[in-house]
Amino acid sequence: MKYLRNFYKYRGLMYEIVRKNIKLQYRDSVLGMFWTFLQPLMTTLVLVFIFGNVFGKSSSGVVNYPIYLLCGRLLYEFYSQATKRAMRSIRNSASVIKKVYVPKYIYPVANVVSNFITFFISLIVLVCFIAFFIITGKNPPHITPYVLLAPVPILILLILAVGVGMILCTLDVFFKDIDYLYEVFCLLLFYMTPIVYKIDALKISSKVFRYVLMANPMYSITEMFRSCVLYGEMINIHHLLYALGFALITLITGVAVFYRKQDKFILHI
């Protein structure tokens, strides 16, 4: 009850930080907010060109490669941006946290939320892609009523990002090295997740390696998302349970770690 009342009191702060992040992100750029969907559009075109044409093979057996890639990229981009921003949030707000009492969890959470909103705007690109391929009739994606399930993987990803963000920002207060390590981790994650390739198309003999790839919750989440918007299938229940379980455990761990350490933040930032 106490926590809820506190949250209610500081809901304005949450709103202001989210608003600030979004406003400042594209301030001083000529195209402004337009970049939220221009950027994924352009990077996807680059990736489609490289992996669809130059390297060729990796896209074999995919219904519609550009949409396949875009789905993975949008989700990955949200996850990596949100967690990176959340990771640095406590350090970046050191001047406030040192002077004024504020519920500290607001900072990582607000950073994930603001990225979530830009992610939502960038989904317009996906809608445009889908519309384009349906109208031209070339490799149209299978849009069925299952598309309505698309929010499910997105919400799971949001839970995961908040959990990871809370763990990372706690670690970052004590060890700034995490900043650099996590950059490397995100690069690894990009290639470990089937974003540009399809997991079945990989020629890997090692069973262990295949399991490692499939244990990645990002794999389950992107596959679920593709089921909804590309394959037009029901979400795979195993993916759902695994990803949801993983996300919830991460969130609980994140909250627990954060609450145990938050009183010590001020001594280190």
Partner: peptide, 9 residues
């Protein structure tokens, strides 16, 4: 922003 930091709407 500053107002919100102090908990005002």
């Amino acid at each position: 922003l500053y107002g919100a930091t102090m908990g005002y709407t």
